[in-house]
Structures are given as C-alpha cells and as structure tokens.
Design a protein around this nucleic acid. Structure first.
Length: 481
RNA sequence: CGGAGAGUGGCGCAGUGGCAGCGCGCUUGGUUUGGGACCAAGAGGUCGCCGGUUCAAAUCCGGCCUCUCCGACCA
C-alpha cells in the first residue's frame, strides 16, 4: 500500500479510476492482457449485487440453471445478425486433447444460441410456457481496448433467457426485467438511470428491440448499466423453438434475454467516488461500518476500557449492520481513517479515551465528511438511520449531478459545440427523426452516440437535431464508455 | 489495427559506457497513536526478451515481446 494521494479526478479521471480499483483492493491486473482478478473486497461487492438481483429474479418467477461454456461455432452462425455482431470478438477453441477439433468451439460471448438449442428440446406445448431461466456465468468477448470492470475480455454477469407464447408476453417480460434493473441500480447502487429503448444501430445483435438503463459517470460520460431484449421470433426461428397451441397449431415462441454484469461495480466507483477514493452505497457495501479504536500506548488500563467500548459497539450493532473493527496498533488513527475512506466504507465509528469518558462515540460519514458525536446508548437506533440517509444522499447527489449536466438542445451548431473537445460535458436531450444516417453523421462529427430513446418523453413533437425533419421522439446523446 | 507513453527490488522512480541506487512498502527491536508517526538494524534485483558492438552494457546498435493511455469495436 502506498501513502501517496490519488490522482485527482479533475486531473485525469482514467488514472484516478485505475488507482482506486487497485488501491481499494477491488481488483488487480491478471497476467493475460485484458483480464482481471477480482479480489475479495471487490467480489464481496459483487456478491451483494448478485444477492439483490437474484432475489428479484426469483420473486418474478425465474429459476437458475447453468449452460456450458463452449458453444459449437455453427450455433452462433444460425442467427444472421447475431453472428455479424459477435464474430469480431469471439474466442474460438480449435484444439482439444492434442487433436484438432472437427468443429471449432466458441467460448460463449452470450448464451442465446446454446440456450435456444435446449429450449427447442424442452418446449413442446403451450403448457410449457412461459419458460423463465436465469444463469450466473462468465462470458468472453475479445475486446480491443479493455478497462478494469468496464470492459474486460472475461466478465461475470447474469443472463436471463425466457420463452413465451405471445409477442405481448415477451414484451411485457423484457420491460419487467428492465424495471428490475432500474430498481437495483437506483435503490441498491444509488445510481440514477434513464430507462429507454436502444436505437436500431445500438440494439443487441439479433434482437427485435433492446431496452437499456443509462447512467452518467463522474466524468459526465454515459455508461450502459443493464440491457433487456425482446428477441421477437428471431432466435425461435433460428433454433426452431416451437410449441403446439390450444388449437393444435405449431407456433414459434417469442423469446427475451437480459443481462447485468460486473460492469456495475465500475459504475458504482465512477458515480460516487471522490478524490479520497471509493464511496460505496451502504446497501451494497461489504463493510458498512468500520470501527477505529484509539488509545495511548503505555496505558493498558486505557486500552482495556476502549476495547470494552468496542465490544459494546459490536453488541449494539453486530446483528444490524455489516461491521468490522480495525484495531491495528501498527497504524496511526489518521492512517486508518484514510485507508477506510479510500476503500469507501460509508460510516466510521471512532472511539478513544475522550469518548469513553463521555460515554459517546464519534461518527464520520464518508459521503459528506461530517463528524458527529452521539451517546453510546443511541448506536442501535442512529447508525442504521444514518446509513439510510447516506444511501439516499448518494442517490440524490448523483441525480443532481446528472441533471445539472443534461441539456435540451434543438440547434445542431450548439450540439456540436457542446460535444467538442476530448472529455464529455454531459447528456444532450434532442429530437431525432430516427434515421440511421442522422445518427451515424452525429457520431462521426461529434463522437456522441444515441444512448437511448427514453420512455419519458415530452408531450410535444419537434424537429430532428440533425436533418430538421419532423421527429416524434427525443433521444439521449452522449459520449459513452 | 492507427497515434502516444512506459518496461530497473512488492509499488513509484533515478541512473547516458566502469561497484545497481533512492523514496514508499516489507521484516525485527524500541518509542508512538483523535487526520497518512519516529529511530535503529535487516531482507529483497539474471535492469522485459534475444542478438550485436566493446577490455567493460541497465546505459550504445538491431530485432522482438508486454503493459498503460487516446481512437475504431463493445456489457
């Protein structure tokens, strides 16, 4: 561990991000380019996110299963758009057991194809529907420019895959799961998101429609934090997922898929972090409260009293919050304060000789840096309340930041000016006619892409920011990760 | 793949031909402890790899590899 300060976010956001990830011990670089090791602290954060997602998946009727890592190459090729979208980033196994394989195997970039293959075996009748499956898995995409958590060659995620009798049911499912992502992002990760539809060019390879939640990071760039796809009958037709309806007619299923990944950890870091380091939302923080006891050496009596105080804190809070104690004598209090701030623990409790005398403790909030003294008798009541308040404050703060950096524009010259330069100045809401050409030109000229067409639209209509033709809807434009 | 930068103890770096160093971290002992403590003694290196020049190469020359950042691609 180094004593040096982090690179300030304003100076170099990327450098800040990489330093935070490594120094907070979330992850480390692996010996293979583009791969990372998720360390225990980072993995604990992932487990908390997993738990919240999994709980909601089960509550909406989904069951977990597991499908193989290897997919026959021919499967990927069955859906035309799918192969086009994914072929540049496939990892392909050509040899096994010392022999060249008769058919190469693809390391899954996503599992629509192999799951489609299995769904065909499992679905015969309308009585088998809907089929609601989720899997927790790793996937591999051979990305050109990796970034810790945001874009690694291998990443962890969940992928939901469902099959339905009707288009309406599939659509309803895709939107239901997007709402689960909205709920988890906003209420657990404290990240405000904009939910909407992806444009044709930004949608998932092989989908009928893609839905997304988009978040603004601390450098004002956009990050796609979760997606849900209505796959129509594209995969059902490619994999012959068919059922007999009530009238004994053979019908193709309507399928969906949806995913959220370890990228969310990157989103949490970049949404809430500051120049001191990480700030974790209490609901997901592996450690919600860190207790830092303080005493003078040479006084065993004082030390014993402080440690008794620590025991009282543990008794009051141990069952209610995720609490750890840092009683390392080899580090000064100041060092320990900085360390736990770097690692983003939402609330710190300081307890020393002065507090013992007054029967109090000092609480230090990570989000506002405020310190306040409370009576030890109030711990069980006040600490959970304070954690809730921190959770709420992080969300409100991020929302305010996003809103302050979102503008509505109707003039393309102003749009270009807004997007000028290396960094990002934020989100632009603008009317867009929906034409692929306008979208492509805007991207070429400004590097901004359509992030989504938000569900929430103004009542009025307008003119396309690029071509000036009539436009029914607004889109969010931004430079994205 | 295009552009930029970097490879020297765990980390950050200095070292432009002549004994491989500094700061932090690590170990041991001691003194400390309310915002990144101090003293002392230690451990730790085939200087990214291969070849060449030279009495002598971390340093000069040639080739290769890797990583990071910026772009195209993407959860």
């Amino acid at each position: 561990m180094s004593d040096e300060k982090l690179t300030p976010r304003s100076q170099d956001f990327s450098a800040w991000y990489n330093e935070v990830v490594q120094r907070a011990e979330l992850a480390d670089y692996a010996p293979v380019r583009g791969c990372m090791v998720i360390r225990p602290y980072g993995y604990a954060l992932w487990e908390n996110l997993q738990r919240e997602l999994d709980r909601r998946f089960k509550a909406t009727g989904h069951k977990n299963a597991y499908f193989p890592l290897f997919i026959p190459l021919s499967f990927i090729q069955k859906e035309a758009e799918h192969i086009q979208g994914f072929s540049p980033e496939l990892a392909v196994v050509t040899h096994g057991g010392g022999e060249q394989l008769a058919e190469p195997l693809v390391v899954r970039p996503t599992s629509e194809t192999i799951i489609g293959h299995m769904f065909k075996q499992w679905i015969k009748s309308y009585r088998d529907l809907p089929l609601l499956i989720n899997q927790w898995a790793n996937v591999v995409r051979w990305e050109l420019r990796p970034r810790l958590f945001l874009r690694t060659l291998e990443f962890l995620w969940q992928e939901g895959h469902t099959a339905h009798a009707t288009e309406e049911e599939a659509e309803e499912e895709a939107l239901r799961m997007l709402n689960v992502y909205v709920d988890v992002a906003q209420n657990e990760a404290a990240i405000p998101v904009i939910a909407g539809r992806k444009s044709e060019s930004e949608k998932f390879a092989g989908a009928l429609r893609s839905y997304t939640i988009e978040a603004m990071m601390g450098d004002r760039r956009a990050l796609q934090a979760g997606t849900s796809h209505n796959l129509g009958q594209n995969f059902a037709k490619a994999f012959e997922i068919q059922y007999l309806d009530k009238n004994n007619q053979l019908q193709y299923c309507w399928t969906t898929s949806w995913g959220m990944s370890t990228r969310m950890i990157g989103a949490i870091i970049m949404t809430h972090g500051d120049d001191q380091g990480l700030i974790l939302p209490p609901r997901l923080a592996p450690i919600q409260v860190i207790v830092v006891p303080i005493w003078r050496s040479g006084s065993e009596d004082e030390k014993a009293k402080v440690l008794e105080g620590v025991e009282r804190i543990k008794r009051a809070l141990g069952e209610r919050v995720r609490l750890e104690i840092d009683a390392r004598e080899e580090y000064s209090p100041g060092w320990r304060f900085n360390e736990w701030e770097l690692r983003g623990v939402p609330l710190r409790i300081e307890i020393g000789p002065k507090d013992i005398q007054k029967n109090q403790v000092v609480l230090a909030r990570r989000d506002t840096k405020e310190k306040l003294a409370i009576s030890q008798d109030q711990l069980a009541e006040r600490v959970p309340m304070l954690l809730d308040e921190i959770q709420k404050n992080l969300f409100e703060r991020a929302k305010k930041f996003r809103d302050e950096n979102t503008v509505e524009l109707s003039d393309y010259a102003k749009f270009k000016e807004f997007m000028e330069g290396e960094g990002s100045r934020g989100f632009v809401r603008a009317y867009w006619c929906g034409a692929r050409e306008c979208e492509a030109k805007i991207k070429e000229e400004t590097k901004a892409t359509t992030r989504c067409i938000p569900f929430e639209q103004p009542k009025t209509q307008g003119r396309c920011i690029y071509c000036g033709k009539d436009a029914k809807e607004q889109a969010i434009f931004a430079k994205a990760y």
